[in-house]
Every structure is written in structure tokens, then in C-alpha cells.
Amino acid sequence: MRTDPTTGPALEIEHLRKTFGALRATDDVSLTIERGELHAVIGPNGAGKSTLITQICGELRPDSGHIRLDGVDVTRVPAFGRARLGLGRSFQITQLCGDFTVLENVLLSLEAKGGGSFDVFRDPRRNRAHRDVAMHWLDTVGLADFADRQASALSHGERRQLEIAVALARDPRVLLLDEPMAGMGAEESGKLARLLAGLKGRYSILLVEHDMDAVFALADRISVLVYGRVVFTGTAAEVRENPEVKAAYLGDWEC
């Protein structure tokens, strides 16, 4: 079943459907994220972006369709199983362990990668290799100085940065970023955009984002989601010129 993980697409979504009563939240969505591609999903509020993300990470089961991670069909695999297979994600509303330190949050990510350990004797904070990896990523996102600070004491922007470090530390095959810039100031989101630009090509990333400047600057391809349907997929330039997209947004943004 499994195709060669070095050649096939990193993530394939085929004819995904999910309805809530009469609402078609996901309406025959097909998407492909090529290896090393940064693929953005944009769409107006209520377009079904969050519903799509929760189906990809396994928290919500689609009515029909398929999701393949590195060629493996994971449609029936629960969320923790997908995470172990290499799906990493950040949350729109940050989900961090507030009582843990910043460093412990990243160490948890490394511990949990294999499903967690039943080792009750060793202290994970003393794992040199994990510490080094964690500190590397905290340094990358600009949180190295806050390693020993309690996560709940971080600012909104810093929590978002920590979310990214937690997701990246485990070297995910596919990275889902759910509005990583939401609620960030201009300076912070600029910093994050530079960080994402630096990751481009090394990771396969699905980016859901409202910040259009960032999306147009970063994305290799953009899919436009409207009322649960993908109305268009193309490069930034193609999306700008597409009449259907313009109609959907009705001048919501200036191109």
C-alpha cells in the first residue's frame, strides 16, 4: 500500500465530505501537498477551514473520502496514531501545558512522538539529546531565553511561537499550521513569517491563515475554500487573477 515516501505527495486528501445536518462543511474537497511544498488554504469565515483541519488531524471523522499521509491511508486512524505517523500541528487557539515550563512543553513533544513511555524511573528533563533538540528549536523560534519560564506566563505571541517549536521539534512529515498568526502584532507576525520562509522546502506544510500578505508571500500554492468547496487552487499570482476567487471574496482584500 505504501508508496515510496521520498517521491509521492506528503499529504493527499481525496473527495472529503462532512455534513452537519444540512450544512455541507466539507464538500468534496481534494487537496495535495507535495513534498517540501508550502500549501496555503484561505477562505472567508465559515468556509470550513477549521472543519477541514480537524478531519486531517483525526479529531473529526469525515463522512466519506480519503486522507493519505505519505501514501498510507489514515482515514480511519485516530488522532494519536496520525501524530505518531508524523503529522504535526499547531492549534488556532493555543493548546499548551500551562503548568509546564517552555522547555518541558517541547520535551513532551519529543517524548510523545513514539506514543509516550512507561518509564517511571528516568527524568525526561535530563535527556541530553532531547534537551539539545528542544533548545535548538526554542532558539529557532526565539524562545531560548524563556526555556525555564512557565508556559502560562508567556504572552500571546510567545505562545504561538512555542506552538511552532512544539510542532517542529519532532521533525514532522507534514505540518498543519492553523492560523499561526492569529492575534499577533505586525512585528510578531513578521518574525513568524520569516521563520516560516526559512522552513520552506524542508517541510511539507499546510498553512491555514487569515493574514493575506503572509500567505501570498510564503505559499507555493494556494487553495481557496468557499462554503466547504475548493473553488480554485493555484499560485499566488493565479489566485489574484482568478475571477471566481474575486467574486467569492467580493473585494474582501485588495490585490
Binding site: 494519536f80 501524530a83 500551562g98 506514543g115 525526561p124
Partner: peptide, 19 residues
Amino acid sequence: LVLQALRQSERRAVNLGIA
């Protein structure tokens, strides 16, 4: 570490690979 993570945010832990 995993046990305490489950207390603080089960959603986080599950999405990191914890059953």
C-alpha cells in the same frame, strides 16, 4: 510528564501521539 500533560490539555497530548 505524559500523565501531567493529559491533565493540562488532553487535546494537546493526543495530537502529539498519546493514547
